[in-house]
Simulated scan of single mutants.
Amino acid sequence: MRFDEGNFRGEADFLFETSPGEPPGPQALIARQAAGWSLPVHFHLQHQFQVVLRGSGTLGSHILQPGSVHYTSPQSGYGPTRAGEEGLDYFTLRVLTEKGAWYLPEARTAMTLGIFKEQKWASLNPAAPARGWQTLLELREDGLAAWACTSQAGESVACPEKDSGGGRFYVVIRGKFSEGTTDLPEESCLYWAPPEAAPHLVTMASNSLLVVVQFPRQARLNEVPAELQVAPSPRGKKVN
């Protein structure tokens, strides 16, 4: 789906989400932001991770590159997100589906006074070993964390850290993996949450890169009234 409007210019590929009227479940999409375009400051009502797939840009004062991760808690305003000359593609991941965005300052009156807000940023460490796991966000007591793994064809990949109960996304930035009979090529992702058995992936291509983001345990409990699950801001004009 391609959009060309005042707040967002580019495309959005919806990988999976729950439909209106259904109990909210996991949501994953890839935003493909047009070169040079700036997405204004806004917030969401759900916990969210964004993981950069390709391209370059900035989020506020933070430089974005493939493998960069950004976590934001509910109602924490972030941005602007500016795409570089080659554009900026990034995953947007939530354990509970939410539609649209609450743009600031217009939606400031919708914010809950006194609510705790936070954001976390991390990027791949260029000095890290060429193979194996690296920590992007240290595992916190509430379960929030993020890791990356570079692996070679035939290697088995299983996240070594304890889960939070809040849900995880396994995001393929480069290369290809498989999980059972499911192929996970570049630009795909897998959602997992207990009590299901944690996934064990097999690397199918050399120099593959996987990013795993783990939500705090309270993320799956963050109920939002049905009337607020779709932000009142325009989603943009569909042009193809």
Rank of each mutant, 00 (worst) to 15 (best):
D142R: 02
C159P: 11
S233K: 08
S164Q: 00
T181W: 10
Q152I: 01
V172S: 05
C189D: 11
E196Q: 14
E161G: 09
G132A: 09
L113D: 15
V202H: 07
F169E: 00
L113H: 07
L136A: 02
Y191D: 00
T182L: 15
N125D: 15
S233M: 05
R217T: 14
T112I: 12
F116H: 15
G165T: 08
T150A: 14
K117A: 01
R220E: 06
S188E: 00
G154C: 10
H200Y: 03
C149A: 03
V224Q: 09
G175E: 10
E223K: 13
G114P: 11
L184D: 04
Y191I: 03
Y170L: 00
G132I: 05
W121L: 12
S206L: 15
I115W: 14
V212N: 00
R235C: 10
T150N: 11
G154V: 05
P126G: 09
Q218A: 13
L124G: 07
K117F: 06
L137G: 03
V212P: 06
W133L: 08
L144C: 04
S206G: 14
E187P: 04
P126K: 10
L113W: 15
E141I: 12
G165K: 01
L201H: 02
T203M: 07
V212L: 01
T181A: 15
L201V: 02
V157F: 07
G143E: 04
P199C: 04
R131V: 12
K120E: 14
A219L: 01
G236Q: 06
P225Y: 13
E227W: 09
C189K: 01
G167Y: 06
I115N: 05
